[in-house]
Each structure stands twice: as C-alpha cells, then as structure tokens.
C-alpha cells in the first residue's frame, strides 16, 4: 500500500469526525425531527397562553344569556367582542371579572354609518341618533330587535324612485314589473326581486294597441333582446 493512502485516509477521517462534531454542536436539538425546523418550537408555540376563552366556555355558566343571544340578531357575535378577553375569568371566575360594556362608543364600532359597509347592515348616524342616550336603554344587546324592515321600495332604491316620479312610468307601482319576496327586505342581496323576462310582458301595453301609449311591432322591433336591455324602464326615453 503506498504510504500516501494512510495519510489521505487520516485526513478524511479528521474531516468526517470534524463534520459530525460540528453538526452536533451547531444543529439545535430536535431540529429535523418533523421537517427543516426545530420540532420543540412547535411545542413552545402550542403552549402559549390563551386570552380569549371562546363563547362555548361562556355558555357553560351563563347559559341563560347564551340562550337569549341565540334567538337574536347578535347570535353570531361572540361574548368577548363586547366583554373583552375572558380566559382569566374562566380560570378564576370569582377573582377576575370581565368588563360589562355600557358606553355608546362600543356599539358604534360596528353600527356607525360607513359607506364602505355592506348594504343592509344596520347603521346609524351616531351624532343624530338619540345623542348621549346609552344604546342599552332602548336596545337589548344580547338580543337586539330586528330593525323595522323598509316598507316601501324607495327606502333603499331612492335614486330609482326619484327618476320614476318624473318619468312616463310614474303611475306604475314597482309591483307591476317586479315581484319582491318578503325576504328581500331582510336579506336584499341573497333574495332578489324578479324582472320581466319576456318581450310580451312590455308588449301588453306597448304592443296591445292602447291609445296614448307608444306602440311597436314586436315582430320586427329589437328581436333578440328583452325590452329593458335597450330601454331603461324607470326613465323611458320615448316622449
């Protein structure tokens, strides 16, 4: 065996041993147990303290309030939204008491008018709406009453209503052309009113030979389209 070989082997042995020792010193314990990270970090993150107990915990003792809440419009509003984090209260119910929110400032966080909020979400102008009166004097926060649903279409569709009043269709009630289920007033986006889908529907007046009403021949006028795809019925252009 040439004498270089044992030397080379010795050099390799030192390198390998050095690598193993360095790896043992530098790579932290539990690194690589479950992936390219310290498995112990997951355990320490999992052991962090909880601040929010969750509404299921609240309901274990406050079952009466929990039941009231389930019936009202705040059924999806968790207790700790208004009563602050309560994990410590759950751990020591007698020693730590959560805050009972009373002031006007809290309710307007959600219910002050903001144009970016979704249409239909109950909102007030907190300056004009019974100033200085605590909200809870009129509204029961655990089961607030359903806001009175709008009775007329113009409550929400004001722009259409004002155009309609100066148009030739002013005398027609909305129900002439739209069928609005009651649910539409509560849930305006999910349940939508109907629109005329057949040309013959407009034709009952505009192709029926009624005097004083613009007439067309449905057979050769705008064939592939439903009338309102070209004409705006709330403010028809023909005069």
């Amino acid at each position: 065996m040439p004498h270089q070989v044992p030397r080379l082997l010795a050099v390799f042995a030192v390198a390998v041993i050095g690598l193993v020792v360095a790896r043992g010193l530098l790579v932290p314990e539990t690194f690589g147990d479950r992936g390219h990270y310290r498995a112990a970090a997951v355990d320490s993150i999992s052991a962090r303290e909880q601040r929010y107990a969750g509404h299921h915990e609240c309901a274990l003792c406050h079952s009466d309030v929990a039941e009231t809440r389930l019936d009202g419009n705040h059924r999806n509003v968790s207790c700790e939204v208004c009563h602050e984090p309560a994990a410590r209260h759950v751990a020591a119910p007698m020693d730590v008491k959560p805050v009972v929110a009373q002031n006007r400032g809290l309710c307007v966080l959600c219910h002050a008018y903001n144009p970016s909020r979704p249409t239909g979400f109950p909102q007030i102008d907190s300056v004009m709406h019974n100033p200085r009166v605590p909200c809870m004097r009129c509204h029961q926060p655990h089961a607030p009453e359903t806001p009175v649903p709008p009775t007329s279409c113009s409550a929400c569709h004001g722009q259409i209503a004002s155009q309609l009043t100066v148009s030739h269709h002013a005398a027609l009630p909305c129900s002439t052309c739209h069928e609005a289920p009651d649910e539409h007033r509560m849930n305006p986006r999910a349940v939508r009113p109907t629109k005329p889908t057949a040309r013959a529907f407009c034709g009952t007046c505009h192709a029926g030979g009624l005097a004083g009403i613009p007439q067309i021949d449905l057979r050769n006028h705008g064939e592939p389209y439903v009338c309102w795809q070209c004409h705006y019925p709330h403010y028809p252009e023909a005069r």
Partner: peptide, 11 residues
Amino acid sequence: KVPACVEVCPT
C-alpha cells in the same frame, strides 16, 4: 379552538 380573529368576528 378557532383563531381569535374568527372567534370575535361579529358578521
């Protein structure tokens, strides 16, 4: 449990 943001989201 659910994350805190999910727990408190009122809508």
